[in-house]
């Protein structure tokens, strides 16, 4: 790759969402949403259940098309160049999506095949990806025998197989105990640091946010804030992220888990 192209790809954001609105019947799920996820950065999408996070994820993964606005993954429009866009995207869905009766390796090689990789290359990458999440020893065990946190780590390994430049995770720590949560978060943060991936991490758990993260607050389909964590506190005139979030959205402590 020559220098100018490299320069360009480095300056490219991993994800750009511009003026996206989406409605189901009379329900406005997303209202003029814009946000960016830079490469090599960890961006938190903070919102309560029903804020529109899952609709946004469905649009980014092209389960259905956005009715207005554009979504670019590393500069590829999801609607106009779906193949190129999806090739650059790794997803961890909120629901468990592994085949319980198949082994870790079989689950991973299936996914690699979905991205057009041959058997040899699939296996090579699957082994590396399992090492990456610390499950290299258990490659031939069935998913059924894993804990919830381990299964999540397999899903993270899986979405790395096709070398995505953008990783989106939809509440990946829901239902995990504290130890598993921490290991899942630290693995993903490590990926940002070592692989230069852009991450969009949807959550409603404020303690998952670090001071250096970028943050996007989504509430009832609208982006209320987008920027740095200190910027959010300043913007809301609050001392902590949870106070800032409550001030912005007008929610009470009880609504915020």
């Amino acid at each position: 790759m020559d220098a100018s192209v490299k320069q360009m790809s480095e300056s490219l954001d991993a994800l750009t969402v511009r003026d996206v609105s989406h409605r189901f019947g009379s329900m406005q799920a997303l209202d003029d949403v814009s946000l960016t996820v830079p490469t090599g950065g960890f961006t938190v999408l903070l919102g309560l259940n029903g804020a529109g996070k899952s609709t946004l994820f469905a649009l980014i993964t092209r389960l259905y098309d956005n009715t207005s606005g554009t979504i670019d993954i590393l500069g590829k429009d999801v609607r106009r160049q779906p193949s190129a866009a999806l090739q650059r995207l790794g997803v961890v869905f909120q629901a468990r999506t592994l085949d319980a009766d198949l082994s870790l390796l079989q689950n991973l090689t299936y996914h690699a095949a979905l991205h057009g990789l041959g058997p040899g290359e699939s296996k090579r990458r699957a082994v590396a990806a399992l090492e990456l999440v610390g499950l290299g020893e258990r490659a031939n065990e069935k998913i059924r025998h894993l804990s919830g946190g381990q299964a999540r780590r397999v899903e993270i390994a899986r979405c790395m197989l096709h070398r995505p430049g953008l990783l989106i995770l939809d509440e990946p720590t829901v239902g995990l105990d504290i130890g598993s949560r921490e290991s899942v978060i630290s693995i993903v943060r490590e990926l940002v640091a070592t692989h230069g991936i852009g991450v969009l991490w949807a959550t409603h758990l404020i303690d998952e946010i670090e001071n250096t993260d970028r943050i996007v607050v989504l509430h009832k389909g609208k982006v209320l804030f987008s920027g740095t964590v200190p910027g959010l506190r300043e913007h809301a005139g609050a001392d902590s992220v949870s106070e800032a979030f409550r001030a912005l959205t007008g929610t009470t402590q009880a609504e915020l888990a």
């Binding site: 790759m1 490219l12 490469t39 590393l74 193949s83 057009g116 699939s122 990458r125 230069g196």
Partner: peptide
Amino acid sequence: TLKPPNAPGGRAYRRHGLLAYFN
């Protein structure tokens, strides 16, 4: 092994050929 193409020294994404469809 898992480095994305936009990372320094990463390999570029390629269009899928016939073999990829078969895989």
